[in-house]
Write a protein that binds this DNA or RNA. Structure first.
Lengths: 209, 209
DNA sequence: GCATATTTTAAACAATCATTTAAAATAAGC
DNA sequence: GCTTATTTTAAATGATTGTTTAAAATATGC
């Protein structure tokens, strides 16, 4: 049966997700992944074809996990400001999650700082989609006509506050003065980003009125 | 004379700064650096001792350039809000600079996403210093007593908006939908971050009054 | 239970990496 | 101008990289 095959395949996926997140694509060797997954050195090429293909699979795998675990689309009955908070909360949950889900946005942060050859486009597609969602939320809150440029800049301000949390890396934790944001803080931190950003969004409303 | 020595040393420094910024530490080979600097393959070890020592030299070199070119401490005669704007402006100039100066904060962004073994502490020292400056600016603007936790979070919101601009990497520019922030936009973008953040800072003032 | 297909294994592969070596080239001191 | 010190060069080193190979082990179909 294919149970045996699937098990090692899954082990490779899990080990690779952790290692790539911790040490990056270039910093992680195939041998290391196979050791961690208790699989043979040749198994990566047998199951995925190459290290790069494994990496792409990890991206897709962690992304799917994030989507199913923390969906970003809130209910319809909410006010636009409540929708905004729910989006930020779900987004932060994804980023700060310590499980497989959290690995994805840490990989995104890595890709943004140092893109690998082929996955750059995929990451950009995903981030573009997130930006579009935020732009829509901003326009809903603003309620007035607002120029494209201003929306793009406000979106930058919001996206950066969230994704920046994905940079707090294990390797840096040791000599980090400030204590990192933990998953337990996710609600209150989402509250902060929401309030801080809503004040900024509303600031621009003065000029269009 | 040592003129010949200094020239190749400087060429190595310049080439390494560009290559490390573009492709990261692990992604750049010593051979590549020497080719770009038109120097022999052994010159890196002769002049710096090792690839890692060269990397540390690049960090220090670009950091010094940033400090002398765009000092962060504004004049004393300004209001606290003007000081805040001047800080953000100088900070953005450093990050968006296309010369050697700009390379430093792009390296910082890389280090935050994927720290290398030894330079992590240095980078953390530098970023901690920037955070401290921003915390002081926030307290000056706020003018009232404000709890440590809130200041830390507001500082995160501000730092992230700035440093996130260092992530817009050359390698990713090709398939980037949104047009990157250019150095020509630095004043108006600094204006945006200032206004957006001041609104957020003032929002919290409501509760302490 | 035997023949076939699938998965795992150990070994070897060629390429690349940072670094070292020792000789050659150039500069400096006097 | 000759000796000494410094810098550059080309070649080799040993370690590590991702990938391939072919045999061994295991599962599957009937």
């Amino acid at each position: 049966m294919t149970d045996r095959k699937n098990r090692t395949r899954q082990n490779l996926l899990d080990s690779a997700a952790v290692l790539f997140t911790e040490k990056g694509y270039a910093g992680t060797s195939v041998a290391e992944i196979c050791d961690s997954a208790r699989a043979n050195i040749a198994s990566v090429n047998y199951h995925f074809g190459s290290k790069e293909a494994l990496y792409r699979s990890v991206i897709g795998y962690t992304y799917d996990q994030a989507n199913t675990l923390y969906p970003l689309d809130a209910g319809e009955k909410m006010s636009s400001e409540e929708k905004f908070y729910c989006f930020i909360l779900a987004f932060l949950k994804r980023i700060l999650s310590t499980s497989m889900t959290g690995n994805f946005y840490k990989l995104v942060a890595k890709e943004m700082a140092e893109p690998t050859r082929e996955s750059g486009t995929l990451i950009n597609e995903i981030i573009s989609a997130k930006r579009a969602k935020i732009e829509k939320l901003i326009r809903d809150i603003h309620d007035e006509d607002i120029d494209e440029e201003t929306v793009v800049r406000m979106t930058h301000s919001i996206v950066s506050q969230c994704l920046f949390l994905g940079l707090n890396e294990k390797g840096r934790r040791h000599h980090l003065k400030r204590k990192p944001v933990r998953f337990e803080d996710v609600e209150s931190f989402a509250r902060h980003i929401t309030d801080f950003s809503l004040a900024g969004i509303k600031y621009y409303r003065k000029f269009t009125l």
